[in-house]
């Protein structure tokens, strides 16, 4: 029995020094949990030795506010209730383990979730900002080109009128025969799903595709119209309803047209 027990004598000492780890720690804890007076005595003796060795150093008083704080806490606390030792020890240990595990896991999970959320939120904000910035830049460029166009004496404004498919629709094209121009439309009905409006410039016989656009929620739309081939001044502008990808020649109903 004593030879079989021998390794545990050392383990008990090591355990009292909190130096045990790994498999040996698990083995020893299982051994003591099953009840071993010899190991408990060995641990107690080691604790006594270490305590006596540790407290033998020159005394140093901790900061005075620690005493004051403790006495205040103790003064405010209720009288501790006597509890049976084992119940107290088991309860305290179990509660401490449960609290540590639960709070650790819970806090980690919460923070990870929160961090992920924040990262996603930040990405969303960044993306929205980038979109807004791009939209603003496009808008600014558009208005700047409008101002440039209007400054040129060769620029003219062409009116487009609503056709039976959209009688209330109106539009103007600010047009320069060599630089191209800009379309401003209003009162356009929303394009059906899969459809968009397409602008056509007509110089000779065949209409030329000049861009696809969709109105915003208020029925307005703008479009930059490319310059026509040299020597082919545009005579007529027209808008038809076409498949959203655009087509090379008009197929749908005419919505707007200049005279």
């Amino acid at each position: 029995m004593s030879t079989m027990h021998e390794p545990f004598d050392t383990l008990a000492q090591l355990h009292a020094m909190a130096a045990l780890d790994g498999d040996e720690l698990r083995q020893f804890e299982a051994h003591v949990a099953a009840g071993c007076a010899r190991c408990e005595a060995a641990m107690r003796e080691t604790e006594e030795t270490l305590a006596r060795a540790a407290m033998g150093g020159p005394p140093t008083a901790p900061p005075a506010e620690i005493r004051a704080t403790l006495l205040r806490r103790v003064g405010a606390s209720r009288r501790p209730r006597p509890v049976r030792f084992m119940r107290w020890a088991i309860g305290t240990a179990a509660a401490a383990v449960a609290a540590a595990v639960l709070s650790g896991v819970y806090v980690a999970a919460r923070y990870e979730a929160r961090l992920g959320e924040m990262a996603r939120e930040q990405a969303r904000v960044k993306e929205a900002l980038a979109r807004n910035e791009l939209a603003l830049r496009e808008q600014t460029a558009f208005y700047r080109s409008a101002v440039e166009l209007l400054r040129d004496p060769a620029t003219r404004v062409v009116e487009l009128h609503g056709q039976p498919a959209a009688p209330a629709a109106v539009a103007r094209v600010v047009w320069h025969d060599t630089s191209g121009g800009l379309l401003f439309a209003a009162n356009l009905p929303p394009a059906p799903a899969g459809k968009a409006y397409e602008l056509w410039t007509i110089a000779g016989a065949a209409p030329r595709a000049a861009g696809v656009f969709a109105p915003d929620a208020t029925g307005r739309a703008t479009l930059t119209v490319p310059a026509p081939p040299p020597g082919q001044p545009v005579k007529v502008f027209a808008v038809t309803l076409e498949p959203a990808a655009g087509v090379d020649a008009p197929t749908g109903p005419m919505v707007l047209a200049s005279k």
Binding site: L50, A51, L70, S77, F85
Partner: peptide
């Protein structure tokens, strides 16, 4: 020391000295 106050009832003199209890 706060734990010592709260856990004083759990101290068992048969299991060791006050010093070992506190220092451990």
């Amino acid at each position: 020391f706060w734990e010592s106050w709260q856990g004083a009832a759990a101290y068992d003199p048969a299991r060791g000295s006050a010093e070992a209890w506190l220092f451990t």
